[in-house]
C-alpha cells in the first residue's frame, strides 16, 4: 500500500517535470517565431463571383469573366497614395514586358484623377484596372493592405501571395513559375 502510494507520487512528479521541460522548449521556440500574423495561402480557389467596375471606362463586369483565357494572372492591389506602390511600379512594368501574365490592377480607395496621374508618372503595367472604392473587393481576395500581389493560375488558385511591395527576388520567382 505504502509502495503503491509512493510510485503514484513519483509518476505524478515525473509527469509534472516533463510538462515543465516541454513548456520550456515550446516557449523557447516560440521566441524565434514571427509574431506578426499574415494569412497563409489556402488550397481553395479564390472567390471571383462579384461585379467590378473598370477604372478607365466605368464598364461593369463580373470578375470571373476577367480571369479567362490565360494561364496566369497577377492581381496587384495599388493606390496613388501608397508610397511603396511607387517603388514596385518598375517591377510590375518588367513583368508586363517580359512575361505573358495577364496583369490585373485593383485601384484601392483612390480618386480617379490621382490614379490616372500616377499611371502617367510611373507607367501603366496593367492590362485591365478595376476600382475598389470601398476596399471590399480586396477583402474578397483575402487582402488587407496596399500593395499586395496575388499570382493566380487558370483554375483560380492562388499560387503566390506577396504582402508589401514586390522586390527583385519576387519578380524572379514569378518569372520562374510562369515560364515553365
Amino acid at each position: 500500500m505504502q509502495f503503491l502510494e509512493k510510485t503514484k507520487k513519483s509518476i505524478f512528479s515525473l509527469f509534472i517535470l516533463i510538462l515543465l521541460i516541454l513548456s520550456f522548449f515550446v516557449f523557447k521556440f516560440a521566441l524565434d517565431k514571427e509574431k506578426v500574423y499574415s494569412p497563409k495561402i489556402t488550397d481553395e480557389q479564390i472567390f471571383t463571383d462579384f461585379e467590378v467596375e473598370d477604372l478607365i471606362d466605368g464598364r461593369k463586369i463580373n470578375f470571373s469573366k476577367v480571369l479567362f483565357g490565360k494561364n496566369f494572372y497577377l492581381i496587384n492591389i495599388w493606390s496613388s497614395w501608397c508610397e511603396p506602390c511607387k517603388d514596385e511600379s518598375d517591377k510590375l512594368l518588367e513583368l508586363k514586358k517580359e512575361t505573358s501574365i495577364m496583369m490585373v490592377g485593383i485601384n484601392y480607395k483612390d480618386k480617379k484623377k490621382n490614379a490616372l496621374n500616377f499611371l502617367k508618372l510611373y507607367g501603366d503595367p496593367f492590362d485591365q484596372i478595376f476600382i475598389d472604392k470601398q476596399g471590399t473587393i480586396s477583402i474578397n481576395f483575402g487582402a488587407y493592405g496596399v500593395p499586395e500581389t496575388f499570382l493566380i493560375n487558370d483554375h483560380n488558385k492562388v499560387l503566390k501571395k506577396y504582402i508589401g511591395p514586390l522586390n527583385d527576388e519576387d519578380v524572379f520567382e514569378i518569372k520562374k513559375i510562369t515560364n515553365n
Binding site: 515550446v26 516557449f27 521556440f29 516560440a30 517565431k33 500574423y37
Partner: peptide
C-alpha cells in the same frame, strides 16, 4: 503559442 510552435497553426 503551443499550437503555433507544435503544429504551425495560428
Amino acid at each position: 503559442i503551443f499550437l503555433d510552435v507544435i503544429l504551425d497553426e495560428q
